[in-house]
Amino acid sequence: MSNKELEPLQDPGLPAHAHRKADHDEAAANRAERQVAILFLLSALGTVLFIYSYIFIENNIYIYIPILGNQHAQQLFLGLGFAIALFFIGAGAVHWAKTLMSDTEVIAERHEMRSSDEDRAALIATVKEEVGAVGLGRRSLIKRSLALSLGLVGISPLLLLRDLGPLPGDVLNQTTWAEGVHLVTDPGNRRLRPEDLEVGAVAHVLPEIEDPEHRSLNSIAKDALLLIRIRPEEFRLDAERLSWTYQGIIAFSKICSHMGCAVALYEQTTKHLLCPCHQSTFDVPTGAKVIFGPSARPLPQLAIKVDDAGYLVAAAPFNQAVGPSFWERKK
């Protein structure tokens, strides 16, 4: 074998540039021009449709479109018109660029980025001269006061960080629930008696307050409670937790211990409570023990009892913070 045969494969280089049909065929070029014009005209028609639907289509007309169903005609054609108008401007421009604009390949030369030594020296000399002319070197009062003002402006945004506070303090550990607070329906604000709940029933309740019309959202987000009634013999709770229930009625915080969604998907057959956000599943008879999902803790249980008039009331505040974990949460 000779040396020549052992040489590696030669770089074949770029293929020769093939010009498009429109570059050498006048008829093809004219055809491409017409195509681009048609695309732009379609865009113009889209705008006309947009204007027409805005002015002439009544606001109460619904038309049936297969798959989409009954649609509001004006909204539909406004959207379609605008979409057509924008899309075909782009389509026309792209088609124009691809078929008619010059496709000659140009090689751009790359040069060194660094300026020449003379240019650099000249710049430094200019800067020095200008600084001397302004007089910053001599007028130290101006220099210092300027530094002060610039510095203050610079650090002033730090002040706005104050709005991240104040720290919540003990607020997250407290709810409106306390001994003797009545359980009222949400919405409706009616007190409940134990006999109002059948076995298998649930009720969404909030603490009774003086002005239920102006209940603050922040308090609802911590106070929301779910009452569930099952057969008392189905509970598998220790004596203390069992004493927090009343004749099969058990009360759990509705705020998920994972991310704070409202846990209220209750399956009567399995006695599971589900959180709709991340599918944490809590087992009601065992005191909302987590049996599936990302939640780390059972839902807090509220001790309930009946007052002298026969209404359900809280027997004690929650014994722990409700809702998701936070840094200062007492374990």
């Binding site: 059948e198 029933a201 649930v202 009720a203 009567q268 057959t269």
Partner: peptide
């Protein structure tokens, strides 16, 4: 009546009017 997995929403917890 609370059919299947659905819990009961009794006439007191949610009144007939509601």
């Amino acid at each position: 009546t609370g059919p299947q997995a659905m819990p009961v929403f009794g006439e007191k917890a949610i009144t007939p009017a509601e």
